[in-house]
Amino acid sequence: MSTFKQYSVLPGFNLALGFTLLYLSLVVLIPLSAAFIHSAKLTWPEFWSTVTAPRVIASYRLTFGASFAAAVVNAFFGLLVAWVLVRYPFPGKRLVDALIDLPFALPTSVAGITLTAIYAGNGWIGQYLEPLGIKVAFTPIGVFVALTFIGLPFVVRTVQPVLEDIEKELEEAAAMLGATRWQIFRRIIFPTILPALTTGFALAFARAIGEYGSVIFIAGNIPMISEITPLLIITKLEQYDYTGATAIAVVMLVISFILLLIINLLQWWVHHRGIKV
């Protein structure tokens, strides 16, 4: 026991840890293991042919491609928004700051139908894009738009605190030594916020991959073209193909576990960044 836990005068460790582990096992761990155990019903070749069927591959391509594109756009605009919020004064700043978290707070089905209404051919934005030959709703671009909406807060909220903590002295010193503003940003500020920016990017990407509610309304869900992987799981479930659905779910679970690991490493990088400087 002494090797497992350090001595403390505080009571309740066994009760608290016991309850935590019991709850986590019952609600999260045992149900999650069900997916892996159920997929073991398939032989390896069966599993492989299920998760690499052409329609499934097309859905991976869309899900990962759109998630990546959305995360890139969010990394750029998220950095810009965080920069403006931290450094420049403007009226209504607190309101804008509060609004950033809207995608976290707004239920995904509401986001889905609203974005669809805006980007449909007769919508507020769609009516101007349609004559230009750009169709957003019911195409892969719609998936990208929904995923951009969903991922925005992740980058802003991870970069913002790091920008706030940056020491102005370094920038001043660089300026005194003759660096231009752009050089200072590239050589001093950007390397400092890079770990946070990468973390925000990874968080937005990870969230986008699993996203369902906000996407299915705007995607149009055409097989091979605008069908995301989570929707494919639902489609298989509705056809009572539990094993097929589980096989794809296992692929998604493994990918999210890998992403979770990468995000943990990135967060470690953010926290230990200060030591090197």
Binding site: P31, L32, A34, G210, L237, A245, L253, L259
Partner: peptide
């Protein structure tokens, strides 16, 4: 947080 909501529903169906 890192599990797709759809997968979260699916695992309860499996049980």
């Amino acid at each position: 947080f890192s599990v797709s909501p759809v997968v979260a529903g699916l695992i309860y169906v499996l049980i």
